[in-house]
Computed example of a mutant assay.
Amino acid sequence: MPGYKGHLVGGLFFAIMGMVGCVLFGWIVIDPLQGAALTGFCLLGALFPDVDTDSKGQNIFYAVFAAVDLGMIICRQYVWAAWLGFFAMLPAIDSHRGWTHTWWAMLLVPTPILLVPLMVQGTGAITAFVPFYVAFCTGYFSHLLLDGKFV
């Protein structure tokens, strides 16, 4: 099983290949900022399954969670900050390689990427966030693949 560096490399490979494929098929036009953001989401997805254990990946992921949560608090978005805090605690409920290492978690965990814009801005906002959902799922898939879950 690869460590956090191996999962980051795997996530980066899948991010680049996914974006190249999407551009070649004409599914999406990616500017550099969006490409960097999609890569970031893919890398977070690649790290997420190991947030249930003390690891460097956990430290990186929770540093991002803390920064986003602090931003929400500064912007007085207390309800959203509370929800983020609640969801950030869920991986600690089970043992390592528990629910975070399942195919259904790969699809379910990133759903807030779609649900939050839906709740805030309505149905028209979802289409802009679908690539970010797919990027997170792709990174998550790369983690599960490298851990041998699909062998």
Score class of each variant (00 low, 15 high):
52 D>G: 10
85 G>I: 08
8 L>S: 01
77 Q>L: 12
109 V>D: 07
125 A>P: 11
144 L>T: 06
64 V>E: 07
129 F>W: 07
70 L>K: 04
62 Y>S: 01
133 Y>C: 01
107 L>W: 04
100 T>N: 10
9 V>A: 14
94 D>T: 08
130 V>I: 15
73 I>T: 08
11 G>N: 12
109 V>M: 11
118 L>D: 04
106 M>V: 00
113 I>F: 00
60 I>W: 09
149 K>V: 06
119 M>D: 03
51 V>D: 02
59 N>E: 12
92 A>D: 13
114 L>W: 00
28 I>G: 06
62 Y>C: 05
139 G>T: 11
102 T>I: 07
33 L>I: 07
78 Y>Q: 07
83 W>S: 09
94 D>V: 00
71 G>P: 05
51 V>W: 08
113 I>E: 02
148 G>N: 11
105 A>S: 15
145 L>A: 14
126 I>C: 07
59 N>L: 14
2 P>H: 02
63 A>P: 12
49 P>M: 04
43 L>R: 01
71 G>F: 07
147 D>L: 12
143 H>W: 07
52 D>Y: 11
5 K>G: 06
1 M>F: 08
147 D>T: 05
146 L>K: 09
3 G>D: 13
59 N>D: 14
147 D>E: 15
90 L>A: 06
109 V>E: 06
101 H>T: 10
46 A>F: 01
148 G>V: 12
82 A>L: 15
34 Q>A: 11
150 F>C: 12
92 A>H: 03
100 T>Y: 07
61 F>G: 11
42 C>W: 01
79 V>S: 08
97 R>Y: 14
106 M>D: 01
50 D>E: 12
102 T>R: 15
138 T>V: 03
130 V>L: 14
37 A>P: 00
63 A>S: 15
1 M>V: 11
101 H>I: 07
119 M>C: 13
7 H>S: 12
94 D>N: 11
149 K>H: 09
72 M>V: 03
11 G>K: 07
9 V>Y: 13
52 D>R: 04
49 P>G: 04
11 G>T: 05
70 L>F: 15
16 I>G: 12
120 V>G: 02
54 D>W: 12
44 L>D: 03
106 M>S: 03
27 W>S: 13
26 G>T: 01
136 F>N: 04
74 I>G: 06
125 A>I: 08
49 P>D: 02
37 A>R: 03
47 L>H: 04
118 L>P: 04
34 Q>I: 10
52 D>K: 05
23 V>E: 15
65 F>L: 00
112 P>H: 01
72 M>E: 10
139 G>K: 09
84 L>M: 14
49 P>F: 06
93 I>M: 14
94 D>L: 02
39 T>A: 09
44 L>S: 08
43 L>I: 04
131 P>Q: 01
9 V>M: 11
130 V>W: 05
67 A>V: 14
14 F>K: 06
37 A>Y: 00
97 R>W: 10
142 S>D: 02
21 G>K: 03
22 C>Q: 11
24 L>Q: 08
79 V>D: 10
101 H>P: 10
87 F>V: 08
85 G>T: 14
118 L>Q: 11
77 Q>P: 06
79 V>Y: 14
92 A>I: 03
87 F>A: 09
15 A>E: 02
105 A>I: 09
109 V>A: 13
57 G>P: 09
45 G>V: 01
131 P>A: 02
151 V>L: 11
62 Y>I: 05
140 Y>R: 02
66 A>S: 13
99 W>P: 00
75 C>D: 09
111 T>V: 05
124 G>S: 14
146 L>S: 04
121 Q>G: 13
